[in-house]
Nucleic acid binder design. Structure first.
Length: 753
RNA sequence: GCUCGGAUGGCGGAACUGGUAUACGCGUUCGACUUAAAAUCGAAUGGGGAAACCCGUGCGGGUUCGAUUCCCGCUCCGAGCACCA
């Protein structure tokens, strides 16, 4: 008798799939289409980790499920390769990031193939490939042409360690998301994408998406729309008037002072000779103050500017203060303080002994003009780093920006000897002296040395999948129309950043006529993390990392690894790795193997009911993404087949239903049984049995069980009589029966005494 | 502080619109096979009790014939946001 040898079987089928390319997708069939993708990985030197496996396997289960149901399925794959790890490695070792990336991709591809994924490998994409980033630059130029990519001098988060600017969402607890160094504010001229232009649509269309509520709420909060009014305050002495934003214009009678942010543009005009030094000193301190300090110490600080404004409602003279509890980037950077209504203003007034006046509310529209503001800021895309997509811009001798003509794309990343950024505020691209020079329309110009935030590269890759080798366009109109929007997108990160940016680009390119839809992702599955057996996050330093390739090579094989990660718990919850449960799943697959290859098939079909029940359960569970209970149902089925005896049909059905999870083993089974993998259907008539069990409760507590003919289930009187004459029930009904309630659907009879 | 999740045996987790709580897996115990072990197969397994029974889904109330599920009020844990006027 042969034993189940996963590694042997898996090698065999992976070779067959490599040669016959069964997962190659084309637009030419008449069946409905289905496109699925995971958030493409950053191919790190460490290779695949168990989190990737969970993410990719969810997509693979759905891919194979829908393929077996006859849909025309596309499941592509790609690599998000720009970024700091490859660049930092280059700085340390002198190895070009291009080289490291190539090695890492090769390793990633090899590992993904060992998991048996149903990927159309002909559609691989890589964001740092010039063939790809040529079109990232093209996308940039389209946004630039419409004024949605623009430059602005402003205070930005700066990481002194990585020597680069960071976007708001790349600052975590006041620290750089990559190196963990404390960030600071620095005034610089930077590139932005005007995502705020689409704030309303991004907000309003969230409700129509089949996305997890958690993500939808996070995006809504991130956009943070609030409605209020802008109110002008005249400044005594003729300085420019101050416009404030407030959500409570009706409280204006209680506004006893104004506060402007330290970065407020017209701050200088408010200062007097007496206050100038003190205020500028305060401003300098506030700007230096790290985000950490601000968070740990929310004690109000501030100084009087020396100027007064006139409250348009009370006509009173009120002082103008500067304080860092007012944020420059929100509203107008200035507020009217109503200490009687607002806790923060109250705290400030108490501390600095400013008047607190109780106020009657007035009409909201009396003194201001209605205004809507957003917490979301424009997307900062400049990075002073080498390993990114060069921004296709050049400057003339007066410093004015000009787009690089589209026929000169791609702007290739130049080769340099030293990848290290410096504190000049320019990337290592500035070291490529020859590359810097460019001629546009006969004029000598200097190239932009900033590169694009990696999120720009991932903001359109789902569309590249439709025509990955297109030389004439970023994406082919017909292919896009056929395959997209993406039906299922799966990942466990980037709830606001990437998933908001890709929606923004989609709306922009729809407006430009390049896309026939306004939302790129129909359904989003947001999977949980897999933690170490000790429940903690896996990390190299803690030494608790589980390597998926080790699990395979230890003899369990890819099918066990895949099936285990689907069985580990609900896909959207975090889970802890349990090495012993892996063994349990292996035993289950071993039993499947035994049923197919080492058991005499039963001639008598005693399992038809459970067979149909299992088909229904597994089908519905996969539709609901309840992968863990789908596997549990298959385990139950196998346990029953061991007890009762399996027919050939049972083993066929088992193999078909298990194939999305364990494709190698089941391909072997189906080959032996000489049958296809077409998804089976259940017949409702086999789901009902001749006799059913009716539960008898007394006051809601289970007291007896009756076996009733299916036909009698509608006869309430008969069932009630049977129940009341039951010995066990009689013990409780001596004192009389008040009423009985029979629920046929639940097959339950409750006797109330 | 605000928003959103979550709490079920020794452990991970089931229970679809209120209807037999603990499916499935792990662990544990016993048995079969074996010279022995592993592997495999079978049985038992929420707590208390000799039993009849009683108690059990974080805590306290409520609605209901019936609540893990719905409502009100808490506690604890996790995630995200965080001086957004």
């Amino acid at each position: 008798m042969e034993r189940y040898e996963p590694l042997k079987i898996e090698q065999k089928w992976q070779k067959i799939w490599e040669e016959t390319k069964p997962f190659k997708a084309t637009e030419e069939t008449g069946q409905p289409k289905m496109m699925l993708a995971e958030m493409f990985p950053y191919p790190s030197g460490a290779g695949l980790h168990v989190g990737h496996v969970r993410n990719f396997t969810i997509v693979d289960v759905l891919t194979r499920f829908y393929t077996q149901q006859g849909l025309n399925v596309l499941r592509p794959f790609g690599y998000d390769t720009f970024g700091l790890p490859a660049e930092n490695y280059a700085i340390k070792t002198g190895t070009a990031p291009q080289e490291v990336t190539k090695i890492n991709i090769t390793n990633f591809r090899k590992q993904a193939k060992r998991l048996g994924y149903a990927i159309d490998w002909g559609r691989e994409i890589n964001t740092s490939d010039p063939e790809y980033y040529k079109w990232t630059q093209w996308c940039f130029l389209q946004l630039y042409k419409k004024g949605l990519a623009y430059q602005k001098e402003s205070y930005q988060w700066w990481c002194p360690e990585d020597q680069t600017v960071l976007a708001n969402e790349q600052v975590e607890n006041g620290k750089c998301w990559r190196c963990g160094h404390e960030v600071e504010k620095k005034k610089m001229k930077q590139w932005f994408f005007k995502i705020t232009e689409y704030a309303d649509e991004l907000l309003e269309e969230i409700d129509n998406l089949e996305w997890p509520e958690k993500i939808k709420t996070m995006q809504k909060n991130w956009i943070g729309r609030s409605t209020g009014a802008e109110i002008d305050f005249e400044v005594v002495g003729g300085a420019p008037r101050i416009t404030v934003f407030t959500t409570r214009p009706d409280t204006i009678y209680g506004a006893t002072f104004l506060v402007v942010a330290p970065e407020y543009t017209a701050l200088d005009s408010l200062l007097t000779d007496d206050t100038r030094e003190k205020v500028l000193d305060y401003k300098a301190t506030a700007l230096k103050k790290s985000e950490i300090e601000r968070q740990e110490n929310k004690e109000k600080t501030g100084v009087f500017t020396g100027s007064y404004a006139i409250n348009p409602a009370t006509k009173e003279k009120i002082p103008i203060w500067v304080a860092d509890y007012v944020l420059a980037g929100y509203g107008t950077g200035a507020i009217m303080a109503v200490p009687a209504m607002d806790d923060r203003d109250h705290e400030f007034a108490e501390k600095f002994d400013l008047p607190i006046v109780e106020t009657e509310l007035c009409d909201r529209d009396l003194f201001g003009t209605p205004k809507t503001t957003y917490r979301m800021r424009d997307w900062l895309i400049s990075r002073q780093r080498y390993w990114g997509c060069p921004i296709p811009i050049a400057y003339d001798k007066d410093g004015n920006p000009h787009p690089i003509p589209e026929d000169q794309l791609p702007v290739l990343i130049p080769e340099v000897d030293d990848y290290k950024p410096d504190n000049s505020g320019r990337s290592a691209l500035a070291k490529a002296k020859d590359w810097l020079k460019v001629t546009i329309d006969g004029e000598e110009m200097t190239r932009e040395t900033d590169t694009l935030d990696g999120y720009a590269c991932s903001s359109w890759y789902l569309w590249r999948y439709a025509s990955p080798h297109d030389k004439d366009a970023a994406w082919d109109q017909d292919a896009i129309k056929y395959w997209e929007p993406v039906d299922y997108y799966c990942g466990g990160d980037h709830a606001v950043a990437h998933l908001l940016y890709i929606r923004f680009w989609c709306k922009f390119f729809a407006d430009e006529g390049y896309l026939p839809f306004r939302e790129p992702i129909k359904r989003l599955l947001y999977n949980g993390y897999i933690n170490a057996p000790d429940g903690k996050k896996m990390s190299k330093s803690k030494g608790n990392v589980i390597d998926p390739l080790d699990v395979i090579n230890d003899g369990y094989g890819a099918d066990t690894l895949r099936t285990y990660e689907m069985f580990i718990g609900p896909y959207d919850q975090d889970a802890a790795w349990d090495p012993r449960s892996v063994g349990g799943v292996y035993r289950f697959l071993n039993r499947c193997w035994t049923l197919a290859f080492a058991t005499e098939y039963s001639k008598e079909d005693k399992t038809i009911n459970i067979r149909h029940k299992t088909i229904k359960k597994v089908t519905e569970d996969i539709h609901r993404y309840n992968f863990n209970t789908a596997v549990a149902a298959l385990m139950e089925y196998v346990n029953e087949l061991y007890k009762i005896g399996a027919t050939t049909e049972d083993v066929v059905i088992l193999a078909k239903l298990l194939k999305p999870f364990a494709p190698h083993l089941t391909s072997e089974m189906l080959e032996k049984l000489n049958t296809n993998d077409e998804w089976p259907k259940w017949d409702e008539k086999y789901l009902v049995s001749d006799t059913v069990e009716v539960v008898v409760q007394v006051n809601g507590k289970l007291r007896a069980k009756l076996s009733i003919n299916q036909a009698d289930l509608s006869d309430e009187e008969k069932i009630t009589q049977l129940a009341l004459s039951d010995e066990k029930v009689k013990k409780y009904t001596d004192s009389g029966v008040k009423k009985t309630i029979f629920v046929p659907k639940a097959k339950i009879l409750n006797i109330v005494i």
